[in-house]
């Protein structure tokens, strides 16, 4: 299988996951979007990071 085909398969799989997930959980409310930039927003970070358990 060629590189472009493998890459397209990988991207298609992730796109499917994102679309399915958005259909299942819904997209965030536009008026509740987080600030574009965390710095200066006054909001605490989510804490969802690899280094947190």
């Amino acid at each position: 299988m060629t590189r472009p085909r493998v890459a397209l398969l990988a991207i298609a799989a992730i796109a499917t996951l994102v679309v399915w997930d958005a259909a299942a959980t819904g997209l965030p409310e536009p008026f509740r979007f987080p600030a574009a930039i965390a710095l200066g927003s006054g909001a605490a970070p989510s804490g969802a990071h690899c280094t947190a358990n």
Partner: peptide
């Protein structure tokens, strides 16, 4: 932008 450093695994 994110308020936390670059990560992959989470």
């Amino acid at each position: 932008v994110a308020g936390q450093p670059w990560g992959i695994v989470y």
